[in-house]
Simulated assay, not measured.
Amino acid sequence: MDKLDLYLLFIIQTFKRPRKKNFLFAILTGKRTGQAVTDSHLHQVENQFGLVPFLKEEIFEKRLLDLEKKGYIRIDESGVLLLKEQSETSYFKSPDWKGFSMQDLPHHFFNHLLLAVQVVSNKHHKKSQYLPIVRNKEAQLWVKRWFSKWQNDSHLAEKLFLELTKWLDSSSVLYKDVYVARFSGGDRVGETALQICERLQISIWDGYFEWLRGLHVLHLKSNEFPLLQELMISKVALLTKSGFATYDLFQKGHSFEQIVKIRQLKKSTIEDHFVEIQATFQELAVPFRPNEEVLLKLKEKSFLSLKEMKEFMPDLSYFELRLAAVSGVEL
C-alpha cells in the first residue's frame, strides 16, 4: 500500500459517513465546488484538501476498486464507506499539510525553482544557449522577470545555494534527491521524478507526497527564505476564475447586491464565491460573515453538517453558516 492509497483512506475515514465518489474526487483534486469547500472545513480536512490536483479519474476509480477488493472500503449506492482503518494514515495528520491554503501553489513554485536554478547555474557556467527545463510560458516569463531583478548581483548563485541548503538540510526534507536531482544547469541534466524514485527504491506516490510535504513546509516558513519567496505566487491564484471575478469586484468596493447585478449571476452562485473567498482569505471580513461572538459559539461545538449547525443557530441563514464553517476562527 503506497501513500496514494493511504491518502484515499484518510479522506474516506475523515468524513465518517458514506460519500459519493464524485465528491471524494473533488476533495482529492481540489475542485472548489460549494459543497467541497464547506464540507472539507466542517470535517476539518481542509489541510488535506487537493493534495493530488493532477490525479486522473480512471486512476482514482481503479484505486477504489482495489481497496474494496482488499476489504478496506465498501462501495454501494450510498457512496464509499471505510470498513478497516490503517494506522499509517496518520502521515496525513501532520501539521505540515496546508492543502486548501496552498493547493497547486507548490507546483507552480517548483517549476519556477527549476528554471531559476537552471538560469543561475548557466550564467555561472557562462552558458547562454540552452533549452528551458520547463516549457510552460507563464513560468518562463515569471522567472525572466525575477532574474532581471537579480542578474547584476554577483552573489546571486551563492545566495540561492545558501537558501536551498538551509531548506534541504531541515528535518522536513526526507529525500533531498526528489528536489536536487531534478535540477539542471551547466552540463547537468536533471532526472525525472520517476527515475529518482526508482533509484531511491520508493514508489512514485511515496516520492510525490514527500516532495509535496517539503514544499508545504517551505511555504509555511517562506519568510525565512526571502529569495525563494520571490518565486512563490499569491493565494489569489487559488481562486476559481469566476470566484476571482467576484473577489476583484469586492476589493474595488462593490457590495454583495451590486456584484450580483454586475455579474448577472444567481445569488446562490455569488454566495458560493464568497464562501470560497472566505476560506482562502480567512482574515477578510466578507459580506454576511457572522460576528466574532457567534463564530466562537459555533467553534465550541462539533458539527458534521450544516443541518446540525442550523438546529443550533436557527436564526442564521445557510449562507451565514457556510461562511462560519470556513472562517477559521481559533478558540
Rank of each mutant, 00 (worst) to 15 (best):
S78I: 15
S327G: 06
H41R: 00
Q129M: 13
K84W: 03
G328Y: 00
S234D: 15
D169Y: 13
L83T: 01
Q103N: 13
G50W: 00
K144P: 12
L9F: 03
K301P: 03
A285W: 13
E330P: 10
S305K: 08
E308F: 14
Y208D: 07
Q151W: 09
V52D: 11
K70F: 04
E257R: 12
L215Y: 05
L51R: 00
Y7N: 04
D153G: 01
P287E: 04
A324Y: 07
V117K: 01
A139S: 12
L168M: 11
Y318Q: 07
S242D: 14
A139V: 07
V80G: 01
W142H: 15
R135S: 14
K221C: 11
F15C: 00
S255I: 03
Q151Y: 10
E77R: 14
H273F: 04
Y7S: 03
K98R: 15
S40G: 02
R199N: 08
H155G: 08
K297V: 12
M232P: 05
G185I: 05
K252H: 06
A139N: 07
R199I: 11
H108G: 11
E308V: 12
V120A: 00
F23A: 01
E311V: 01
S90D: 15
Y179L: 12
R63C: 13
E292S: 08
A139G: 13
W167A: 04
L298A: 10
T14G: 11
I73C: 02
L83H: 00
V260M: 04
G185V: 00
L316A: 10
L51G: 03
L295C: 08
K16H: 12
R188F: 13
T38V: 15
F250V: 05
M309K: 09
S317N: 10
L9M: 05
I270L: 06
K21P: 09
